[in-house]
């Protein structure tokens, strides 16, 4: 690496455009919102920065705190499901024969090339009242009833199949988040497992540890950086979800993202919206700091 002073013009050409872009279109807008969060509304559009903490106080009212808690829980559950679902997939791809590896990876990434809105929309058709999941269960139900009738046990099953309320509730939101963000979990896990020293797994098995013990004590431990990256990659977007909860959720599935959106668009209470979105940001930073802390601890343990 060379000192920038040796070639200031080359340095400026390389660093300048990106830095300028970040300053103008990233830091400036965010800074603006940050100031709004400590401002007050004056008239229909004007906002005066008065360094008040009133907006944060309002954003920390029980109504919004509950909302934060709910968003946090939904994001947590979705991330956990993603992890459990993705781990065997990543492991299988990793140990698959060379020639299948790329195909399997491509299959995981392919849905990611479809617009997120379209994927969420596709989920509606699956889950709604007369959707495919309900139709499928209904078909099974009818079949079972048909089988049970001759032995006089059809009474157990009721007159008609009542479609399950799959859409417009929190379960649908969790399912939607898992569906949209699953590739984000598989890829870092795969990247991590791929680098893993296989002789360690073999050694563990040779020394008599069971597959299960080897999995938890060797593979999972060694995959920890990948697990942490995957969790961050799913958890943070899940925290900010607003499209999925908007389309798949019911009246009680409003998440913090939906409320932020409403403050900025319909309700036009910018200071409150700004305070809420910055609380969301602080929560994100907390998650990132936790990751850094974990990474530092792991490094220490290795040393």
């Amino acid at each position: 690496m060379e000192n920038w002073r040796r070639q200031p013009w080359v340095f400026a050409t390389f660093i300048g455009p990106g830095t300028l872009w970040l300053l103008l279109f990233f830091l400036l807008p965010l800074g603006w919102i940050w100031l709004f969060a400590v401002g007050e509304r004056e008239g229909p559009v004007d906002i005066v920065v008065t360094w008040t903490l009133e907006n944060y106080r309002e954003a920390l009212q029980p109504v919004y705190l509950q909302l934060f808690l709910k968003t946090f829980l939904i994001a947590l559950v979705s991330t956990a499901i993603c992890l459990v679902v993705a781990f065997p997939v990543a492991l299988a791809i990793c140990f698959a024969p060379e020639r299948y590896k790329n195909v399997l990876l491509l299959l995981v990434i392919l849905p990611f090339w479809t617009n997120m809105l379209i994927r969420t929309y596709a989920m509606i058709a699956m889950l709604r009242q007369n959707g495919f999941v309900n139709d499928g269960i209904g078909l099974l139900w009818t079949g079972l009833k048909y089988l049970l009738t001759p032995i006089g046990m059809d009474g157990l099953m009721g007159e008609r199949f009542a479609p399950l309320p799959l859409l417009y509730n929190n379960t649908a939101v969790v399912l939607g988040i898992v569906y949209v963000y699953l590739p984000f979990m598989v890829l870092p896990l795969y990247a991590n497992l791929e680098k893993l020293d296989r002789s360690l797994i073999e050694a563990s098995l040779d020394l008599g540890a069971s597959q299960v013990r080897t999995f938890f004590e060797i593979i999972v431990r060694l995959a920890r950086p990948g697990i942490v990256s995957g969790i961050i990659l799913v958890f943070i977007p899940a925290l900010g979800t607003f499209l999925i909860s908007d389309l798949l959720g019911g009246p009680d599935s409003q998440l913090i993202g939906n409320v932020v959106e409403r403050q900025f668009r319909a309700a036009n209470n910018l200071p409150l919206g700004a305070a809420l979105s910055f609380l969301l940001l602080y929560l994100t930073f907390l998650a990132l700091a936790l990751r850094a802390w974990f990474a530092a601890r792991a490094e220490k343990a290795d040393a």
Binding site: L22, F25, L30, G240, A274, L281
Partner: peptide, 21 residues
């Protein structure tokens, strides 16, 4: 660090910030 931020922050925060901007 700043260049890594747009990757990690929730999209909605950037979205509303740009809307206001």
């Amino acid at each position: 660090g700043v260049a890594a931020l747009p990757i990690v922050i929730p999209e909605i925060c950037l979205g509303v910030a740009l809307l206001v901007f």
